[in-house]
Amino acid sequence: MDKLLVSPSPHLHTKTSTKSLMRDVVIALLPAVVVSVLFYGWSELLVLGVSVASCVLLEYLITKYLLKGACTIGDWSAVITGVLLALNLPATTPWWVVFIGAVVAIGVAKMTFGGLGQNLFNPAIVGRVFLLISFPTYMTDWTKPQGFICNALADGYTGATPLGIAKEGGVAAVEGLDYMDMLFFNIGGSAGELSAIALLLGFAYLLIRRVIRPYITLSILATVAVFSGIFWAINPAEYTDPLFNLLTGGLLLGSIFMATDYVTSPMSNWGGVIFGVGIGLITMLIRYFGAYPEGVSFAILIMNSVVPLINKWCHTKKYGR
């Protein structure tokens, strides 16, 4: 009887752990991963493999030899960064460029801040944006490699993303695009931008498993829809329509998987809404008026930097106050 455990309440604990949450995010990413591999074939597998392996390996090496602390690769967060980074790159990206992206994501954006929980910016996005600036040619090469399943891209779209085409040629250039193609996987773009359905499946899974709350994602999508809706209503010849803006580019991937990153998003629901509206606005400003065709990554990074401020002002509603 003297070996009774005595410790303060509560005496039970949820089964949900950091590891199980992160693993759920990886599971939620699987549909998008499968679609991208089917579509882009071996070269996409290579990008994914290099990205995930280097992220995990780098985190292992850094925690073990540089920080000499507990090894944290068991929490699956490095795997998420690896998958997200890969899904943000064209399938034609050379392996060594992918590796540099992983070094920036894990080595710079994550570990120098102190690892999971401490980083200000989403590691995968930092990696991607770094590559976009340093290797613009590789990062905008959307030629389609041979996939595992046969599919017929509409003529004329093979070499570019719909957003890129719209930027170059205006609304008229994307007139023939079929939204059903965007929903499934018939449009050009980086791997993770292929299939809205696959990404939305992941979103549903995350919500059902209560991994994330819907506020950030929904407020981003709503803002994009409203903003583009207003401009499109005023001048449909100049501005792309809301559905086009929702389904193309990295919007779904970014709003579902990257803006909702626990560490780099606000804690409270209202904070999440402000954060989401900000991302939506900045994204649309870049798409309509900026130099780049796509602005989700920049928008998330910019809003990441104001999260501490949002957290300072947005608190949960307290009982009896």
């Binding site: 752990s17 967060s77 929980g117 401490q118 626990y262 560490v263 949960t316 307290k318 009982y319």
Partner: peptide
């Protein structure tokens, strides 16, 4: 379980019936 770093998931605040953080 072994304590690890706070991942800022907000689950504690979501659970708190007094609305604390």
């Amino acid at each position: 379980g072994v304590e690890s770093a706070c991942i800022r998931c907000g689950k504690c605040a979501e659970a708190c019936p007094m609305g604390l953080e």
